[in-house]
Design a protein around this nucleic acid. Structure first.
Lengths: 206, 206
DNA sequence: GTCTATAGGAAGATAGAC
DNA sequence: GTCTATCTTCCTATAGAC
């Protein structure tokens, strides 16, 4: 078995690298197509066409359409977790307002990256069990991290830290999402200021 | 449903009344089917079946599937506007906190009515131009009414009333929506308290 | 491993009888 | 006015050649 394995260095790596590249092309194409046409009209044929491979090849890399979408959602959530972590792991002496601003900014940036795609993912996605699972886990993770942060921070005056964490995370996430989705709305920076002010005052009120 | 009323009075009215009843049956059936199966799997055939009319008859009352959905969305938004109006038109001497609680309570009630259906309408609906138009108008209306209320209320201390109104409406609406959609979450009443506290403190802070 | 061509199936909408 | 039966369209997913 695998007797042709001992070639010069590796025959396997280049293949995997090529395959990885193809997967990347598919994902990039899917992002573009979903953002432009929505989920239903973002057909696998269109995705394959944009990735400049055939529909047959596409199905060799992903078992079905939802798997491609799930990959996109996973990447977005991973980026969100990563961005949030950066601020959480910083030095603690930051003011609560600075921390909240970091949260808001990171969330906004992550959504501003490709608003159309995000909207499609949030609003038109079929709620498969895997996807729901992933989103729930993400929420749980964010709330838990925020709760710990609030519990440790000296400025926080709120009674129930669990409820507060849930409210703050939910508020920042959904408000940002809605504001980004509605491009007609007022100045984003201005609203970021007010959002930060609101949650900060809430958390530090006597 | 004994409507064999060949009254002397009118020949037209009974027919219209019958038609109105049928429309009502269709809408009720659609609400049930969408809530149970989602939008895509909530087929027109299923709706007709539940309304106990044939698919052909259904298409005599609504031109297509999206028109039925639009009817449902319209009813929900109308209920929302109505509930909000009740509190706005009340006597002014109410405290700001009482007003905000009224908003939150009304929003929660309106969503609690049929959470599943709401979730489907918010998340799986195809964003047709008519629907987007209707939602935008609803938002604009709510924000405008809230802005006027804030501008008149003596407790309000916030600098920019327009931005504040947008933030408050957006926060209450989206947070409630998310919380209702996620039935695993904490006590709804408890979170209502915190939500009200948050926006009230924000609006009245020095 | 990649392709073309198409099977397979679902669902929205319509035709035409009664 | 209501029904049944069906048409049309479209898209996912697969088969099979190269």
């Amino acid at each position: 078995m695998a007797s042709d394995r001992h070639a010069l260095r590796a025959r396997k790596e280049p293949r995997q690298a090529r395959a990885e590249l193809t997967r990347e092309r598919i994902v990039a194409a899917a992002a573009h197509v979903f953002a432009e046409h929505g989920y239903a009209a973002g057909t696998t044929n269109r995705i394959a066409e944009r990735a400049r491979i055939s529909i047959g090849s596409l199905y060799q890399y992903y078992p079905n359409k939802d798997a491609i979408l799930l990959e996109l959602v996973n990447r977005h959530l991973d980026a969100g977790v990563l961005a949030a972590k950066e601020h959480e792991d910083g030095d603690e002496p930051e003011s609560l307002e600075a921390i909240m601003r970091g949260f808001a900014r990171a969330t906004i940036d992550n959504h501003l990256d490709d608003p159309k795609l995000l909207q499609v993912m949030m609003e038109q996605t079929p709620r498969t069990p895997e996807l729901l699972e992933r989103i729930t886990e993400y929420q749980r993770e964010r709330v838990a991290a925020t709760r710990d942060l609030l519990a440790r921070h000296p400025e926080v005056r709120v009674a129930d830290v669990d409820v507060a964490a849930q409210l703050v995370v939910s508020t920042i996430e959904t408000v940002v999402h809605q504001l980004v989705a509605a491009p007609r709305s007022v100045d984003v920076r201005r609203l970021e200021d007010e959002l930060v002010a609101m949650v900060t005052r809430y958390l530090t009120a006597a």
